[in-house]
Structure formats: C-alpha cells, structure tokens
C-alpha cells in the first residue's frame, strides 16, 4: 500500500511540476494578498490591543500560509476531479493496487506541496520581515502544523471531489474557503475582529492553526498556542482523512 501510494504521489507531483501555470497561483495569489495587506495596514500594529510583534508582515505571514495551504487543498480536489473526468481514476480503480492508496497518494503529494508552501513563506519572512524568531524548535513546529493542516485541507478537497465528481463544482467551493478563512484570526488578532467574526473565530479551527503557525514566527515558542495549533491540525486531518476514505468507499460501491 505504501509503495503504491508513493508511486501515485510521485505522479501527482510530476504533473504539478509540469504545469507550473496551474501551480503558480497557489503561491502568487496569497503573496499578492500578503503584499496588499501589509502595504496597506502596516500601521495596524499600533492599534490598542494588538499583540506585540516586530512587524505586521510577521503577523500576516501565518495568515498567508493558511490561505496558501487552503488553496493547495482546493487544487488537490481539482486534480482528483480532473482524474475522475478524464477516466484516469477508473483506471486506478481496476488496477491491482489497494484503493486507499488513491487517496493516500494524493495526500502525500499534498503534504510535499504544503512543505514547499511553508518554506516559501518562511523565506519571504526572512527576506522582508526579519525572519521567524522561534529557532529550530519553532521551525519544526511550523513545519509540523503546516504540513498536517495541508494534508487536512487536501483531504477535504479530495472528499468534495469524490462526491461532486466535476471540476467546476470543486472550483465553486473556492469562495466558500475564503469565507471560512475571513471568519478566523488568520489575518488579524481575534480581539480586534468585528463583532460576528470575533465570536465565530473562537470556534474556527483555522484560527488555532494560524495562531499555532504564528507563535514561533513572532516570538519565542510558547507551548500553549503551538500545541493548540497542532491539536487543531491533527484533529481536522484525522476527521477529513476518515471522510475522504469513506467517500472513496461510497463512490466505489456506487460504480
């Protein structure tokens, strides 16, 4: 099963690398949004109630990572929907590999993509914002939360693709993804959010994932937010993978 998953993951990554025009927006869009937010609101750190950070860029970085990871999840879903549309999925199903490998292989590729995205934004932070301050442990924490969250978002994308089966439907959930992201503390401190968003953010797992990613960037690592972030990512990933595998079963039974 592991061998088959890895082979499928390699294929998925190769396809991504061969079509950079589809993969580029996964980094470019969040980068542009990051630039616009930082350029426009860099003074926000002076607001009463804003936690101490050395720059607004460092604060925003975790939000951009979360946004990029979400986009990566949508693109994993689109990739699976494409495979369903062009028949590659059916070829996999009738081939003698464990069927769970279809999902696991895709998620392994998503994990690699997530790792790349996290590294990219840490690099941006290092160049323009003074870099993450949490040291080696902090770096490890960021990578762990980022990759696990990326897998979680990928599993959600795969679940939707397995249920919807068409590329356009998966693309249609993209605005929804942004809505969920906006009602979290990914881009601004939770205490400073406007009224309905502030309450919703408290229950939004994205808030904890973003805050967990942020903690080692803006200061030395403190166990609370990092562990909360890790827990949110692991919980979401476990639930989403279970859903994805279950959706695969349902789909195979329907064939």
């Amino acid at each position: 099963m592991i061998r088959a998953s890895l082979a499928l993951a390699r294929r998925a990554l190769r396809n991504t690398a061969r079509r950079p025009q589809f993969a580029a927006p996964l980094l470019v869009m969040p980068t542009l949004f990051l630039a616009a937010n930082v350029g426009g609101l860099t003074r926000s750190t002076a607001l009463p109630g804003f936690p101490p950070v050395n720059s607004f860029l460092n604060f925003q970085l975790a939000g951009s990572m979360t946004q990029a990871l979400l986009l990566g999840g949508v693109s994993s879903g689109i990739a699976v929907a494409l495979e369903i549309e062009d028949g590659f999925f059916d070829r996999l199903v009738i081939s003698p590999i464990p069927r769970v490998a279809i999902v696991l292989g895709r998620l392994a590729a998503t994990a690699v993509l997530a790792f790349t995205q996290v590294l990219y934004f840490l690099l941006i932070g290092t160049i323009f914002g003074g870099g993450p301050e949490g040291g080696v442990i902090g770096f490890a924490a960021i990578v762990a939360i980022g990759v696990i969250a990326g897998i979680a978002f990928g599993a959600i994308g795969v679940t939707i693709a397995l249920r919807a089966r068409t590329v356009s439907t998966v693309q249609g959930i993209f605005p929804l993804v942004l809505v969920v992201l906006f009602v979290s503390s990914a881009f601004f401190p939770r205490g400073l959010l406007e009224v309905p968003a502030r309450q919703i953010a408290a229950f939004n797992p994205l808030s904890y994932i973003a805050d967990g990613l942020r903690n080692p960037i803006v200061g030395s690592v403190s166990a609370g937010p990092v562990l909360e972030g890790l827990a949110a990512a692991v919980g979401l990933a476990a639930a989403a993978i279970a859903l994805a595998v279950w959706s695969l079963r349902v789909r195979l039974r329907a064939v």
């Binding site: 937010n37 926000s44 607001l47 109630g49 906006f182 009602v183 601004f188 400073l192 406007e194």
Partner: peptide, 11 residues
Amino acid sequence: GISSVFGAAAK
C-alpha cells in the same frame, strides 16, 4: 471579509 477582519484599522 475585509471589513470584518480589518475593521479595527479605522481606529
């Protein structure tokens, strides 16, 4: 989204 996230910036 922007107005509920960044609303406090008006202060």
